[in-house]
Design a protein around this nucleic acid. Structure first.
Lengths: 170, 170
DNA sequence: TAGCTGAGTATGGAAAAGTAAACTCAGAGA
DNA sequence: TCTCTGAGTTTACTTTTCCATACTCAGCTA
């Protein structure tokens, strides 16, 4: 953050959001990876238990070339990893498993899930429920601060971080 | 959930995920609304303080026709609402503000943000930081159950809900 | 060695998105 | 009345993405 930015920041408690460089936004960068059609739905299926090409194809009904492209990208990004499995009487074939980097997408996907549950579910309720293994209670994504407080969206303050930059003048 | 489904569920503690009807999935339904290009980025800008057509255009650099289409859709979906503002010497013009339904997308967007912060940030760190107004601590999206426990992704159990259906046979 | 199967690749057309610029429209001010 | 401005709409073109289907490939079995 340069001096001008800092001055504006200190002055009004605000920041020049209209003139910032949005190219290093973490939301946009995440969407570059998981924002294409089918990608998040593939992760959903991994989560629900699928691991083989034919399983994804069957449950998603998505075109094979796109499925192959998305799986390849997810592996390249380290969100999925390939292992091999061997069905008796068949040769070894690849399967796809989630990595820790992929597991870290769970809060985002849970957020999408719970919004859909709230606003777009069928009259009888959601198609799937998520519960805490063991205690059995319903789970959802919530916002917390490092002090442990539950945080309401309106109490989140967004401030320029270390990589904040102004957009280069045109 | 029909009898067959219930039987499979009770039997193995699992469910026929490959044969389920995915058309009422809450994740997919949320993506139908916010999964198009620019939509989440528009919400991000609303969150950071933009409200006018020209402001979105300036900071996002997105095509005017797409911007108009996305704003219209977000208003129709009740995620944004229009109000009017009046600059002295000018006529009243519309501006866009977030609704409670839009605020409910914050956990999902926070999830995307924190994944990008972790895996795709610049070397010096994120472009923006989120902190709890008041206590000042960093905030992020986490998974909790209704009993108040912090839940690890691997302790989430996904089970068929009231609208679970098997895919119609072909 | 011919056929079968799961996991892809190749291809061609349709739909959506991106780009750029012209055009419209309502009201405030000169 | 003429002009200016913000907020769009429209048009025309290029590029990208999506979709459906056909085809290939490797190794296992008959």
């Amino acid at each position: 953050m340069d001096a001008t930015t800092e001055a504006l920041q200190d002055d009004a408690g605000t920041f020049p959001h209209l003139d910032r460089d949005t190219s290093n936004c973490s939301i946009a960068r995440t969407l570059e990876v998981v924002g294409e059609k089918w990608t998040i739905l593939i992760l959903r299926e991994v989560w629900y238990g699928s691991s083989r090409f034919s399983e994804f194809e069957r449950v998603l009904g998505c075109p094979r070339n796109l499925l192959a492209a998305r799986l390849k990208m997810l592996v390249e990004e380290g969100i999925l990893a390939t292992e091999t499995y061997k069905e008796p009487g068949s040769r070894s074939r690849p399967k796809y498993v989630i990595t820790p980097k992929g597991v870290d997408l769970v809060p985002a996907v849970m957020g999408l899930l719970q919004w859909g549950d709230r606003y777009r579910a069928d009259p009888e309720g959601p198609a799937m429920l998520s519960r805490h293994r063991g205690c059995g209670a319903h789970v959802d994504a919530r916002i917390r601060c490092d002090q442990g407080h539950a945080v309401q969206p309106e109490d989140i303050e967004s401030i320029p971080g270390p990589a904040f930059r102004l957009r280069p003048a045109e």
